[in-house]
Design a protein around this nucleic acid. Structure first.
Lengths: 222, 222
DNA sequence: ATTACTAGTAAGCGAGTAT
DNA sequence: TATACTCGCTTACTAGTAA
């Protein structure tokens, strides 16, 4: 939908055209949008053609009401603004399954991690992680996570080496419960790692390059 | 501000550019908006020129952050949508003072009305009404009032005639307390009548054609 | 890979005007 | 009063391409 049409639809909605038929001329609407009567008229014709409004043409003015389709378009836009300014409790992505290099299995097998996953996340983690590549553009969304501390898994020592702390959030991968595991110190990469009680690859019949939906919950309790 | 620039600003905000500098190319942004890289680049230049964003040009991508001015523009738009979809507790107008034909004085002098104004509105009404003409386009806003019953003043008989019921809402006229008086049965006209404890014309030093701001409260209690 | 300029094309605009 | 058409003008778009 063209942005300038959405603007006019919004103007109509402000005048009550979602609830009622509103009596208004193309000139009056045009003035609200700081444009000409002709443009006002043209916008109305376009909105009409797209099924966003219905019009009853009177001899002088016209009665305009926003259709369900029009209301949906507005609601959609509203929701986008809402998610910008209101606190949300989740972040969602579309990701692509990729193969890791097997280190996930090594790390999740460490008792130091496994015990904390059990205790703090309530997840008896299946050995291995599911690696998911997200679109580069969505990396910016991950910044939202930075505002939240999430569930912290402490670093520990074992076998003469140090295993670093990680930051976790409860997540759903294609609607299956799990958690995202983020290294505590490091910039976000575009590969995300997930753990779960289930063998995600098997249970969701995933192979490399499959698209999956990810929801990350910002709340630390589930 | 041009609607298409606002769309891009919104897109940037969705990617977190209000809180952080966001790393993104003109091509990626363009894809989000279903347009070409060139247009993406041009939009960014325009937003930059208007002071809506600041950019740090890297050798490859660029770091973009929304300025306070840009955030204000988005917040503004958000508020417009909010007032469409969320219940509001008030309606506001800009109106123009006009002369009535003196009937206001006659009506408000009737004990049948005056006593009810006192009792139901808590207003010991100054004799007379202030007549305010609203822009024709704002008439549609009055429809919001129809959804609310307001404060009902009953009809009564006196001097062998019937005085009709009226519907009232607490109001502020240039920030001075009063109430709007609407005939119960009748379509809304573009002339609104206000009563107040004060002589509004004197107290606000109003003469005909002066612009005044009106806020009508939908709640029946003050 | 980027950004962003140029230039030719397409879309949008509004004065004039028919209805 | 209205709506909405035509048409000349302006703005916006993108392919090509330089940096």
């Amino acid at each position: 939908m063209k942005p300038y049409l959405l603007q006019m639809l919004k103007e109509l909605a402000s005048l009550g055209a979602i609830e009622n038929r509103v009596e208004i001329s193309s000139l009056e609407l045009a003035k609200q949008l700081n444009t000409s009567q002709q443009t006002g008229s043209r916008y109305l014709l376009e909105l009409d053609k797209q099924g966003m409004i219905i019009r009853e043409m009177g001899i002088k003015k016209q009665l305009i009401q926003i259709t369900e389709k029009g209301e949906d378009a507005l609601q959609d836009e509203y929701m986008q603004y809402k998610s910008i300014f209101e606190l949300t409790d989740r972040v969602s992505f579309i990701g692509k399954v990729v193969s890791g290099m097997g280190e996930g299995r090594y790390y999740t097998a460490q008792h130091g991690y496994a015990d904390q996953f059990k205790e703090k996340l309530g997840i008896f983690a299946f050995p291995g992680t599911l690696n998911v590549e997200i679109k580069h553009i969505d990396k910016n969304k991950l910044r939202l996570l930075k505002k939240h501390t999430g569930i912290l898994i402490d670093s520990f020592e074992s076998n003469n080496r140090t295993f670093g702390g990680v930051q976790c959030f409860h997540s759903k991968i294609n609607n299956l419960a799990g958690a995202i595991v983020l290294p505590a110190r490091s910039h976000y990469s575009n590969i995300l790692e997930f753990i779960s009680q289930h063998n995600l690859r098997e249970k969701l019949k995933l192979k490399d390059d499959d698209e999956i939906s990810i929801i990350i919950f910002l709340n630390t309790d589930m």
